[in-house]
Design a binder for these strands. Structure first.
Lengths: 148, 148
DNA sequence: TTTCGATGGTTACAAATGAAACCAAGTTGG
DNA sequence: CCAACTTGGTTTCATTTGTAACCATCGAAA
């Protein structure tokens, strides 16, 4: 028979959320303290740094952001002159986004910090634990994609 | 030599966050659709259902919520008459929170749904994958506790 | 062509959040 | 005893977020 109480500390949705929250909060210091970026702004910068030129829609898909978040992040980065918009020739609804020199410089500065952050986090785990989190997360990602 | 670009899709903080976001969003339908609860309200209900009587501070610790979230969630549940506050005899700053019959009924109704949600999520994984996510998450939790 | 639905993106509004100030009640050290 | 500090909890204010409505453009079908 199943117990009628739920142990929150063991409940996977709660544990995942809390874990992500702590990690994300810690990591956010890197882009918040140095440049005062928000998470959507960081993700936008990161997406464009990684891919060169993207549309707002593509950014939203790549980094799992609602389009209003993308819109506002892009507006802010444009205000900072970290990115530019260029009208697409074939479809005038679309704008092609790309980092400016300044945006790229900020991105290049942050990439090593991000990698160091991840490395230091994983270094606290044993090799087996690292393998476990990697395959566990991958499995869950896959399971969730299928469903929806 | 390390690449100077960062692949967001492989970056652990991002993956964790997205995973938690999807899972949490999916799960939230259970308490949102049925009762119009927010996440802090659900966690408060869950904490009290699990522990019987708690203070607001204890709730915040157990469920990783900022005290303002707790305060607001408690106020709302009180408004619904799902919980009551009782003054602590020994320390008049403290209030002892407990679910009413109605609160407990809602809790009891939701527990099986929560468990079913978790079960169905995990059922999509193989036994090895389930073990992997369990030990990976536990290892990360531990690693993060130590540090701070 | 004109119309109609879908798509790219922005804006307006309401709700949720976090930080900091706050109030009250406790504790501690002189 | 009483000032200074801490703790439990609430409130205020600015920021962030999500939903929905919106505008413009596109593609397809009549």
């Amino acid at each position: 028979m199943e117990s009628e109480i739920l142990e929150l500390e063991s409940f996977l949705p709660y544990r995942l959320y809390r874990l992500a929250d702590v990690v994300s909060r810690e990591f956010s210091k890197i882009y918040r303290d140095r440049h005062g970026l928000t998470r959507p702004e960081w993700r936008t910068l990161s997406g464009l740094g990684q891919h060169g030129t993207m549309t707002a829609t593509a950014l939203g898909e790549q980094s799992a952001m609602h389009k209003t978040k993308v819109s506002r992040a892009v507006a802010e980065l444009e205000r900072r002159r970290w990115l530019t918009r260029t009208a697409d020739e074939h479809d005038r609804r679309v704008e092609r986004l790309a980092l400016t020199k300044a945006g790229l410089a900020a991105y290049r500065e942050m990439v090593p910090l991000a990698k160091a952050f991840e490395r230091e986090l994983l270094e606290r785990l044993s090799a087996e634990e690292r393998a476990a989190i990697a395959s566990g997360v991958a499995a869950l990602e896959e399971a969730l994609e299928e469903k929806s």
